Amino acid sequence: MNTHASPKAPLSPADGHLDERSRRARVEPMSVLALGDGLYEVESGSGATYLIDVEAGRCTCPDHVFRNVRCKHLRRVAIEITEGRTPPPGQLALECHDCETAVFVDERTPEPVYCDDHAISPGDTVRDRETGSRLTVVDASDLRADHVQIREADCTVAEYGTNETYDPDVPVVGAIYPHASVRRHGPVPESLKVYVFPRTRLERVPTDS
């Protein structure tokens, strides 16, 4: 999700010295939605919705349009970005595929995305959602499941029978059976066959599991 809604931004000890617009930017209920391209949508507590261009310093509200001032909506977006609750220009907040935690990523990043707790790298232990088996990751690729060919099956990873319920445009991951100790970014033993899966078919196993 890209929406951040909060009843008010936290007050600081210096807030007693804020001007009226800055005070209202902090204390009034507003929800902020990052749209991409440096644009944000702000819904006020009254239900009115305005479009904000942060980099140009513009807002569609009457206070900015008719008085040419830095309104509370521009200030609220700046507060949300500074305090890490809303992504900055050039980024979007997307939900982690495995836990729905908001992850700030480049706005050109394709889904699915994963938070730090669910991202996988070579050497990590993962579980196959179809069989429950554990594997060790040896490669996390950017190649799509519908572009990678399985030679033995004469089809793509996406077309392979047990992968048909997973999105075809997700990256592929190479992993080995049985679970083995593979040094992170190290060589793969030649005796171990690497199987290729759609990324969304695998879930990371916590190290203490």
Rank of each mutant, 00 (worst) to 15 (best):
S46V: 04
V54G: 00
T49Q: 13
G47F: 09
A48T: 09
P62H: 12
T49D: 04
G57E: 07
H64R: 01
G45R: 15
G57Q: 05
A56L: 14
A78R: 06
P62I: 12
C59G: 04
S46C: 01
R76C: 10
L74V: 13
T49F: 04
C71S: 05
R58N: 07
T60L: 06
P62Q: 11
T49W: 05
R67L: 15
G57P: 01
E55S: 08
H64N: 08
L74H: 02
I79W: 14
T60R: 01
I52W: 04
P62M: 14
H73R: 04
G45D: 08
K72G: 00
A78T: 12
N68A: 14
R58K: 10
C71H: 01
R76P: 01
V65C: 06
D63F: 12
C71V: 10
R67Q: 12
R58M: 11
R75G: 03
H73L: 11
R67A: 15
A48W: 09
A78K: 05
H73A: 11
V54A: 08
K72M: 09
V77E: 05
H73D: 08
A48V: 03
A56F: 06
E80A: 13
D53E: 09
V54F: 12
V65G: 01
V77A: 09
Y50L: 06
R70S: 10
G57V: 12
R75F: 10
N68R: 13
L51H: 02
V69Q: 02
F66W: 11
R76G: 00
I52G: 02
T60M: 06
G57A: 11
G45W: 15
N68C: 09
V69E: 10
V69K: 02
N68W: 12
I79T: 08
G47W: 13
Y50S: 03
I79Q: 06
T49G: 00
A78W: 07
V69A: 09
R70D: 11
H73S: 09
R67C: 10
L74Y: 04
C59N: 01
R58G: 03
V69T: 15
S46G: 02
E55M: 13
Y50D: 04
G45Q: 11
V65P: 01
D53N: 14
C71F: 08
H64Y: 15
C59W: 04
G45N: 08
R75K: 14
I79H: 05
T49H: 08
I81M: 13
Y50G: 00
R67V: 10
D63G: 00
R70H: 09
C59H: 03
A56G: 02
E55P: 00
L51K: 04
Y50F: 15
D63K: 02
G45S: 08
G45A: 07
G45F: 14
V54R: 02
T60I: 10
R75M: 14
R70V: 15
A78M: 11
A48I: 03
R70L: 12
C59Y: 03
R58E: 14
I52T: 03
G47E: 12
P62A: 11
K72I: 05
E55I: 11
G45I: 09
V77N: 03
V65Q: 12
Y50N: 03
R75V: 08
H64K: 01
R75I: 15
I52H: 01
E55K: 08
C61T: 06
Y50K: 00
L51R: 04
I81L: 10
